[in-house]
Amino acid sequence: MLFSRRKGFVSVRDTIQKDSMDEPLRSGLWNAIHICIWKQIEYSRYEQYFEQANVYGLFQNYWHNYFKRPLDNLPHDIESAHRVVRKYFFECKWYEVYDFIEFTASYCPENMAPEFIKFCNHIFEKELSAYRFVDGVLTDITSEEEIASIEEAIDTSSKFSGVNQHLKRALALLSDRKQPDYRNSIKESISAVESLCKCLTEDDKATLGGALNRIEKSHQIHPAFKKALSNLYGFTNDSGGIRHALLEEDILTYVDAKFMLVSCSSFVNYMIGKAGEKS
């Protein structure tokens, strides 16, 4: 893991790509097109002309429905058409790349679409895109509100060094693009909540359950909110939970770790706000 991520110096918006797209993400998506579509080009049994290729209909749709260009300007050879598409892909805006990827999934040969979508989702997860294909449509999996919640928690917890470091570590483990550690990211997210509870109760030995009971009385936490957090915390401590070695098959994903980070960030923001009301 790079120093900047390990130490939490990379911003949440640079980590989770929602309103931007770096070169590894763009290149990875192009490779998905290259491997799943361009490398699968076939011609009719007797003709090797562009018009006889299985992707000719896709290129016609690019020209007519996507680029909105005259069809008689569509090149007569596949190499020239490919160059036009490639030039556009690497020069267009980040959000236009998503448009193009979604359009390609809709209009490519039917037998190519499942593997193409699967490959794209792999790249989205690997490069921490905030989007995924769901039922053939690109969908937000990380909202602006979730990003803002993580940012706020890291910012406002600066006076609680333990809380701040746990949150930064959780984000760093989640965002390591070479070797993400979702299990330990979840641990760090929960540890941030524990650390904050101990700070607010001024009891380093307090368990989260005990701390919540005391905070509920002193800061007027709604019982339903307390129960929700207790249930979430219980997930990490039951016999099959994160903190036990009994779960041999690691099935945790980016979505699991992101959910825990967002949830714990929201709790940190809520409790720091509550504590501020009493100061």
Rank of each mutant, 00 (worst) to 15 (best):
A275E: 13
N184A: 14
Q60R: 15
S44N: 11
I242T: 10
L173N: 07
E125I: 15
S158H: 12
D19Y: 05
T142F: 12
G8H: 05
K93S: 14
R169D: 14
F160W: 12
S195H: 06
G57M: 12
Y182T: 11
E146F: 06
A153F: 10
K226I: 03
E202K: 05
R69N: 11
M260W: 13
E47A: 09
A153K: 07
F160S: 04
D256L: 11
D19N: 08
D238P: 04
G210F: 09
I117E: 13
L25A: 03
S80Y: 01
A224T: 05
R214T: 10
T253A: 10
E152T: 14
G136V: 02
L212D: 04
Q52W: 12
W63E: 05
I101C: 03
I117C: 06
K18M: 11
F67T: 00
C197T: 10
D176N: 13
L2Y: 03
Y233V: 11
I242N: 06
I272H: 06
G57E: 14
E51M: 12
F67H: 02
K227Y: 04
I117N: 00
W30L: 00
V84Y: 04
W63G: 01
N54F: 14
A170K: 02
I37F: 01
E79T: 00
F9H: 04
V193A: 14
Y270T: 12
S106G: 01
H219E: 05
C197K: 00
C36S: 04
L229Q: 03
A32W: 00
A148D: 14
E23Q: 07
A53P: 03
W63S: 01
F103S: 01
G234P: 08
F59S: 00
Q165Y: 06
W63P: 00
E216I: 00
C197I: 15
K68A: 11
E115D: 10
P223Y: 02
K126T: 13
F124N: 02
S106W: 09
D19K: 01
F90Y: 15
F116R: 01
L71T: 06
I16Q: 05
I33M: 05
S189L: 13
S44R: 11
E110K: 05
D22Y: 04
I272C: 10
L229M: 08
L196Q: 05
L74P: 00
D250V: 06
F235V: 03
Y46W: 10
E216S: 09
V134K: 11
S265T: 12
H34K: 04
R243T: 11
P75I: 01
G240P: 03
E277C: 09
F119Q: 04
F267C: 15
F119S: 02
L252C: 09
L212F: 07
R214C: 02
S20H: 07
R45L: 13
T201Q: 01
I123D: 01
M21N: 03
K18P: 02
F116A: 00
E188H: 12
L29V: 03
A275L: 12
F100T: 07
N54H: 14
G162K: 05
E216D: 07
S161K: 06
A275N: 14
D176C: 08
D203Q: 03
S263Y: 13
Q48E: 15
F9M: 09
E110C: 00
M1V: 07
P24G: 00
I147E: 15
D72S: 05
Y131N: 04
H244W: 09
P109S: 07
G136C: 05
M260I: 15
I190L: 15
A275V: 12
E23R: 02
H166D: 14
